[in-house]
């Protein structure tokens, strides 16, 4: 029981445990304490020479080689991208050029068609105009002929009506005068 309580005390205070025994680390009467330092120096020098002459430079070479490969690949990728960009720009230019040419062609065809249609329409219009004029002239001629034909009939009818009504023959020139007046009035109406 008593031993357990001391153990508890020791466990809770490791410094007490250190104070109780002598630390082997502080035992400089032991020749091994300093001899280990000598051997450490030997081991460290060998380790240093191995690492500085062989291990570290070799790892450095591996890392350098990797960095070189990565840089080279990146440069190649960058060049390829520039090339691709140029090709895309060229393609775009060609497409734009072709589109402009096609549009010009279409515009020209449309203008040609319009001009053609306008010419045809003008020709047709003038032809119709001529026909119209001709027809009008014919109508006028027919009317004049009809009017000319109506005058002797009207004169004969009027002289016969007057003869029957009055029993006298009207004066030839007077009758013609009155007929002309009546026809002119009818025409004006």
């Amino acid at each position: 029981m008593r031993r357990v309580s001391t153990a508890l005390l020791l466990a809770l205070a490791p410094s007490a445990a250190l104070a109780e025994g002598t630390m082997p680390q502080m035992d400089f009467a032991n020749p091994l304490t300093l001899d280990q330092v000598g051997w450490m120096a030997v081991i460290l020098v060998v380790l240093y020479l191995l690492l500085s002459r062989w291990g570290l430079p070799e790892i450095g070479k591996v890392l350098e080689h990797r960095a070189g490969v990565i840089a080279k690949d990146l440069a190649a990728a960058r060049a390829a991208k520039v090339e691709a960009d140029q090709a895309v720009a060229q393609l775009n230019a060609t497409i734009a050029q072709a589109r402009a040419a096609a549009q010009a062609e279409v515009a020209k065809a449309v203008a040609d068609a319009k001009a053609d249609a306008a010419a045809k329409a003008a020709a047709l219009a003038s032809q119709l105009e001529a026909k119209l004029a001709e027809s009008e002239a014919r109508i006028d001629a027919a009317r004049a002929a009809a009017l000319a034909a109506i005058k002797p009939v009207a004169a004969e009818a009027a002289s016969s009506i007057l003869l029957k009504l009055t029993g006298s023959q009207p004066a030839e020139d007077k009758l013609a005068q009155r007929l002309d007046d009546a026809l002119a009035a009818r025409k004006a109406a």
């Binding site: 001899d35 450490m40 081991i43 460290l44 380790l47 690492l51 291990g55 790892i59 490969v69």
Partner: peptide, 29 residues
């Protein structure tokens, strides 16, 4: 007078060199 602590030191140095030797075996990209 090669001590038990020197044994551990030698072990540490050997492990370091061994790890380097193994790591440098393939030198892979």
């Amino acid at each position: 007078n090669f001590t038990n602590s020197n044994e551990a030191m030698l072990g540490a140095a050997v492990v370091v060199v061994l790890v380097f030797a193994l790591g440098l075996r393939s030198r892979a990209l």
